[in-house]
Amino acid sequence: MAEKVKYLSPEWRDEAERRLTAELPPEKMNFVTSSMSNIYRNCPDGSEKYLYFKFVDGKFAEMLIGEGESPKPEFAITGNYETFAKITRGELNAQKALMTLKLKLKGNMVKALRLASLADRLNKVLATIPTDY
């Protein structure tokens, strides 16, 4: 796939799902069961969007993109659209974004620490999608 897709569009979602299923088998996700939502504020069209992931026993189970309230996740990360875009483009470290209040995490931090490396793996896969932000 060489053609760029628009970030958070249905095409981007389909491509993300295809890559996550192919590249993150359950053993790479430590057989984890968890869910996470990225809440995008100040999207280019002025809306607030969410990107919701769910893994069951390490298997990619669900990915939803929508507007308004996200399904209740175990972890929710909230920030500006541009912040998430910078992270996905590799221009900003996610941890630094959290430590400088550019992102806010809700959920049990102790569990989040254990899942940090998995989130990194997931983000790295998403970063490979040719994307138009």
């Binding site: 974004a97 430590m99 931090m109």
Partner: peptide, 14 residues
């Protein structure tokens, strides 16, 4: 147990 002991840290929301 871990569902009822939370950790806080100098991070957004945490």
């Amino acid at each position: 147990g871990e569902d009822h002991v939370y950790g806080f840290a100098p991070m957004g929301g945490q």
